[in-house]
Design a protein around this nucleic acid. Structure first.
Lengths: 217, 217
DNA sequence: ACCTGAACACCGTTCAAGT
DNA sequence: ACCTGAACACCGTTCAAGT
């Protein structure tokens, strides 16, 4: 600790510590005071390297996005545009699985980070090579939404054993949903990113969209 | 003001005021103290009607979701499952266009609100009538993601006149993206929900998914 | 039953001051 | 150039006390 405190602060170190803090204790733990403590400094020292807290949040988006770009750059694929795009998106997803707080932060911030833009730039290039028009690609990016980056935030979580827990008078109000959930079981909770977004579901939605796009080409 | 202060507080009134505050000044303005002020009371009085701030946030999600259900209930459609689902989703979207802070809040909270569940229940029913299996419907809801509720948060905002603003050394790093954006112009900024999510793009993505689902049936 | 005042712990941030 | 202490304005929330 005291040895680490010797190392001078820097924007880079601050952001790295913030990512670590979020990984370990969630995004809510990322507080200027807590962050400084982690770095063996005072809260006010951070402001020499970082404009304000928003700057820290933008910064850690950038750090994660760079991690995505590095991972994606290592991917080698042969095959059509669809395989290439699909593989890169699934690789990006692996990074989010290591930073589970990140999807919410990416959604929350408009964050036109350079690293994020570079990721999109790669996708645009791949689709261009695949024979899409700019207009089609633009539509495609919108259709993919956050899936282009490898995650998809879900809006409700039926829970792993949802059908068992639902109180009867509530079940009566939701006959179709309860009927569905009682037939469905999620098998692989470990692969879950966010709520109900497991690997299988993510790939289903992704392929549905990619197949649809390919048909438009 | 003083006349309004006469009306006793209630959970209902607190939530309604919170929605109004968010509509007018954004979600960040929804503070226990500010909310109380709006109601002509002290911040601490709210805690008699509401457990904590999180309860307020859950509550306003519920209020908006009920507004969606009411709007959707008024919709009458004839035709196949696809027309019915599509129409209901686009109607839900209209509610979000009145509460622009709501998408971010819906995404941020896991919020298994009853009203949200009822909306999903309706969709499940429509798709069931359309001949889908429970398993297919479950996949479908995941594929739709937040689109099922009528919005789709975008991850970057190229801006309305993006191509003009990009500094040249940045453009060099993003050749494909800049190429695309220079060809594309968004015409209807007023219909935008969130960043780049305008009506046309929303419908494109929605139809792409619905068409894909119909093919699976 | 319903509302409030004072108080607590915790934020982000400014600013003048230290080395 | 880099870091800090004291201070400010603002949070959410508890708790004992008022009517």
């Amino acid at each position: 600790m005291t040895t680490e405190a010797r190392i001078p602060l820097s924007r880079e170190r601050v952001l790295r510590a913030a990512v670590g803090l979020a990984d370990e204790h969630g995004l809510r733990a990322v507080t200027m005071r807590r962050l400084a403590e982690e770095l063996g400094a005072e809260a006010m020292s951070l402001y020499y390297h970082v404009a304000k807290k928003e700057d820290v949040l933008d910064g850690i988006v950038e750090v994660v996005a760079e991690e995505i770009n590095e991972a994606v750059a290592r991917v080698e694929v042969s095959g059509g545009w669809q395989r290439a795009v699909r593989q890169r998106i699934l690789t990006a997803r692996e990074v989010f699985l290591r930073h589970r707080w990140a999807p919410a932060l990416f959604e929350a911030r408009s964050s036109t980070s350079l690293a994020v833009l570079r990721h999109y730039d790669t996708l645009v290039g791949l689709m261009r090579d695949g024979g899409f028009s700019h207009d089609q690609i633009h539509h495609a990016l919108h259709a993919l939404g956050s899936r282009a980056l490898g995650f998809s935030q879900e809006l409700f979580d039926p829970g792993s054993d949802a059908s068992a827990e639902v109180p009867p008078e509530l079940a009566a109000q939701l006959p179709n949903l309860v009927g569905m959930l009682s037939e469905i079981a999620h098998d692989d909770p470990d692969s879950t990113l966010g709520w109900c977004d497991d690997q299988t579901e993510f790939e289903f939605g992704l392929d549905l969209i990619l197949d649809g796009l390919d048909r438009l080409r």
